[in-house]
C-alpha cells in the first residue's frame, strides 16, 4: 500500500510538469500584454517597454519559464503582476470560501443523492424511480447559473428565507455560515446530485441481482438493512468515483456560483486573473487545481482499496 502510494506520487511529478509547461506556453504564446493593462490609457511606448522590462517580460520565453520553475521549486509562487501581492497569499485569502462551498456541496450531494438513488433502485420502475431519474436529467441539463438565479428568486427574493449573496466564515458561527452558504451550495450541488443519484441507482441495481442479496433477504433481514448494509457497501466504488471525479465539474460550477452569489473564492480569482493577464496568478492557480485533482484521484484510488478489499495493488 505504501509503496503504491509513493509510486503514484512520483508518477504525478511528470504530470505536473506537463501542466506547468502547457499552461506557461498557452499564456505566453497568446496575445495580451500585462504592461498595457498596468500602464493604462495614456501610456507611451517607452513607458510600456519600461514596465515590461521591470516585470521581466522582455526576457526570452525559456528563461522566464525556468526562472518561474526555479522559484516554484523553492516554494515561491511569485507575485501578482498587478497587485504586487504574493500569489500564495492571494490563494490563501480565497481558499476558505471555495473550500467551504465545495465541501458543503459535496456533503449535500452525498446526503441527498445517495438516498435518492437507493430509493430509485429499490422501487425500480415505480413513479418514484421515474421522477428521480427524470428530475436528475434536468439537474445536469440546466446551466448552473440558471439554477442559481432560480433558487435566488424563489428562496431569497420571494420567500425571504435566505440571503441573496455573500459569504460568512464558519469561524463567525455555524448559523451565519449555514445561512449564507445554503443557496450557493445547493446551486453548485445540483448537477452533482443528479449524477450521483443516477450512479447510485445503476450501481445498486447491478448489485441487487447478486446472490448474496437474495441470501440476505432470505435470512429475513429488513429491507433497509439489505439496502444500506449489504447492497450499498458493495456498490460503493463506482459511486465514490463519480463523487471524486465530480471535482472537475465542481470547479466549473464554483467559478459560476461564486459570481452569482458573490463569494470571494478561487473561481473568481482565476477569472479575474485571466482577464487581467496576471500570469503568475493564473499559473499558480492552474498548478494548484491540477495538483488537487491529482491528489483527489490518488485518494479515491486509495479508498477503493479500503472500501473494497477485492482490489489489490
Amino acid at each position: 500500500m505504501f509503496a503504491y502510494f509513493v509510486r503514484r506520487v512520483l508518477a504525478a511529478i511528470p504530470v505536473m510538469l506537463v501542466v506547468a509547461l502547457f499552461v506557461f506556453l498557452l499564456l505566453r504564446l497568446s496575445p495580451g500584454d500585462p504592461a498595457a493593462i498596468i500602464g493604462g490609457d495614456m501610456a507611451s511606448p517607452e513607458q510600456l517597454a519600461a514596465i515590461r522590462q521591470n516585470l521581466g517580460l522582455d526576457r526570452p520565453l525559456h528563461v522566464q519559464f525556468f526562472v518561474w520553475l526555479w522559484q516554484l521549486l523553492h516554494g515561491d509562487f511569485s507575485t501578482s503582476l498587478m497587485a504586487h501581492t504574493g500569489v500564495l497569499s492571494m490563494i490563501g485569502q480565497r481558499l476558505e470560501p471555495t473550500l467551504s462551498l465545495a465541501l458543503v456541496a459535496t456533503a449535500l450531494t452525498v446526503l441527498v443523492a445517495v438516498p435518492l438513488g437507493v430509493l430509485a433502485a429499490w422501487r425500480r420502475g415505480s413513479w418514484l424511480d421515474h421522477t428521480v431519474m427524470s428530475v436528475s436529467v434536468l439537474g445536469f441539463s440546466v446551466p448552473v447559473f440558471v439554477i442559481g438565479y432560480g433558487l435566488t428568486t424563489l428562496f431569497a427574493l420571494q420567500l425571504h428565507w435566505l440571503p441573496v449573496q455573500g459569504f460568512k466564515s464558519i469561524f463567525d458561527g455555524v448559523g451565519p455560515f449555514a445561512y449564507r452558504i445554503a443557496l450557493p451550495a445547493l446551486t453548485l450541488a445540483s448537477a452533482h446530485i443528479a449524477l450521483v443519484a443516477r450512479m447510485t441507482r445503476a450501481s445498486l441495481l447491478d448489485v441487487l441481482g447478486e446472490d448474496y442479496i437474495r441470501t440476505a433477504r432470505a435470512k429475513g433481514l429488513g429491507e433497509l438493512a439489505v439496502l444500506f448494509r449489504h447492497a450499498l457497501r458493495n456498490a460503493w466504488v463506482p459511486i465514490l468515483t463519480v463523487i471524486g471525479s465530480g471535482f472537475a465539474l465542481m470547479i466549473s460550477g464554483v467559478v459560476v456560483t461564486e459570481s452569482v452569489f458573490n463569494i470571494p473564492g478561487l473561481g473568481r480569482l482565476i477569472v479575474d486573473a485571466v482577464l487581467a493577464r496576471d500570469y503568475p496568478v493564473i499559473q499558480g492557480m492552474i498548478l494548484l487545481t491540477s495538483g488537487v485533482y491529482v491528489l483527489i484521484n490518488l485518494l479515491i484510488d486509495m479508498s477503493y482499496a479500503i472500501s473494497d478489499p477485492r482490489i489489490r495493488y
Binding site: 431569497a156 440571503p163 441573496v164 449573496q165 452569489f261 458573490n262 473568481r268
Partner: peptide, 18 residues
C-alpha cells in the same frame, strides 16, 4: 470597496442592506 461580478446581485445586496 467590494467587487461584485454580478450586477443584479449587487442591487439585491443593496436592497437587503448588505
Amino acid at each position: 470597496w467590494i467587487n461584485m461580478p454580478d450586477r443584479m446581485t449587487a442591487i439585491n445586496a443593496l436592497a437587503s442592506g448588505d
